[in-house]
């Protein structure tokens, strides 16, 4: 058993610190972000693969990079219990998912049903003329 010295107090206090910023974490985060950004960029720049596939791939790359930065830059999920920061973050993601996903669902449904494009309108009008 060692006695409490000022160094030990520092350690004790730092154990109450939810974040553990280390050079290793930042380097891992930085390098993988660069790699992910570059691959997304090259995929889009050279239009590699089919459009649907490409959209999916880019979205996945963005989500991976999001998680990487969340973990290595923003230190999410590295706190002690109760993991309030994590809970709040997950709740935010749920809300954003609902708002963005819900809005898109609703608005595309509405557009599809009540906001015909100019092209469609011309088609309808031509059809009326032919009647």
């Amino acid at each position: 058993m060692s006695s409490l010295t000022s160094e030990n107090i520092d350690i004790l206090v730092s154990q109450h610190q939810p974040e553990n910023a280390t050079l290793k974490n930042y380097v891992i985060g930085f390098v993988s972000s660069i790699v992910l950004t570059m691959s997304a960029y090259l995929l889009a720049y050279y239009h590699a693969g089919g459009r649907g596939l490409l959209f999916g791939l880019l979205a996945v790359l963005a989500l991976i990079q999001f998680s990487v930065q969340l973990i290595f830059f923003l230190h999410v999920g590295k706190e002690f219990s109760p993991r309030l920061k994590l809970i709040v973050t997950l709740f935010m993601m749920l809300v954003v998912l609902i708002i963005v996903g819900g809005s898109l669902w609703i608005m595309y449904n509405l557009n599809h049903r009540v906001m015909p494009s100019t092209k469609q309108m011309v088609q309808y009008m031509n059809r009326e003329d032919n009647l």
Binding site: T37, A40, A62, F66, Q69, L74
Partner: peptide
């Protein structure tokens, strides 16, 4: 860092 995270989505 948070602004960087938002930018990932703007970029994509």
């Amino acid at each position: 860092h948070f602004l960087d995270v938002v930018w990932i989505f703007i970029f994509t």
